[in-house]
Design a binder for these strands. Structure first.
Length: 256
DNA sequence: ATGGTAGGAAGCCTA
């Protein structure tokens, strides 16, 4: 089962890219982030025409996440538990057979001297609490998405320049470690312990051409999924397309 | 060099 995740930076602006990727890469599941549309404006028909079922949690202008799956989606949960006041559409979860999947758009958190940074940290703590319940249920799950987090300096083209960025700050990395230490596996790093690669290259300053990127999109596996991990890689092709998203897909293969 | 670029909304905000 091939599971991919991709922050598309507007599903309307990127619809042709999404359709091309589905046709060319043919993932069984595609997790999308930064839809920037309400549910009613999501281009469902075009995607369903390619044989995918949908679980969408949209929002106007900002955020928005979705799960696309060839097999039927069941038990869809929209929003991250732990704060009923939180209006931001950053989390959707659903089951495909016995596998539980989440599409995650973790808050960016910049600038760090604004209310955005504590919101990010609190969101990460909520995610950790929720993952604890998934582990207690002994679910086989894959959490994929834009985590807006570089796990280590090896995931940053210029660590010094990003040292004080919310994507690299010690407070952010500490929360990420707390999440991982529950027993999750970073699929990419598990299979490629020493490889340098990125999933995001900003639009400014020719970052893509100069390969000045960050590894912030991740596939995090429950132990039951990690046991079946058969492959994982970053697909740079879509980042090179005309009018590309600033992110590119990362995928993993789960056996069975 | 406190900029740069892209998307969406509406005459700025977010990333």
């Amino acid at each position: 089962m091939k599971i991919a995740t991709w922050n598309v930076n507007s599903v309307k602006a990127r619809l042709s890219h999404v359709l091309d990727y589905l046709r060319q890469a043919a993932p069984d599941v595609l997790l999308l982030q930064e839809l920037k549309v309400v549910d009613e404006a999501f281009p469902a028909l075009e995607i369903e025409d390619l044989g995918y079922n949908l679980a969408v949690h949209g929002q106007k202008t900002y955020n928005g996440v979705a799960i696309l799956s060839k097999r039927p989606l069941e038990d869809v949960e929209r929003g991250l538990a732990g704060d009923p006041e939180d209006e931001q559409a950053r989390y959707v979860e659903a089951s495909v057979g016995t596998l539980r999947l989440a599409s995650i758009y973790l808050p960016n958190g910049n600038p760090v001297d604004s209310e955005k940074f504590p919101y990010k940290l609190a969101w990460m703590e909520r995610l950790t609490a929720h993952v604890r319940t998934l582990l207690d249920l002994e679910e086989c799950f894959v959490l994929g998405g834009d985590f807006n987090l570089c796990p280590s300096d090896a995931d940053v083209h210029d660590p010094a320049a990003f040292a004080d960025d919310a994507l690299c700050r010690p407070e952010s990395r500490a929360r990420f470690r707390e999440l991982m230490y529950l027993g999750l596996t970073d699929a990419y790093r598990a299979l490629h312990p020493d490889r340098i690669d990125y999933t995001y290259w900003g639009y400014q300053g020719g970052a893509w051409a100069k390969d000045q990127g960050l590894r912030i999109d991740h596939l995090l596996l429950a132990p039951q999924a990690a046991d079946r991990l058969a492959g994982c890689d970053i697909d740079r092709t879509p980042r090179g397309w005309q009018k590309a998203s600033d992110h590119t897909p990362i995928w993993c293969e789960i056996e069975g």
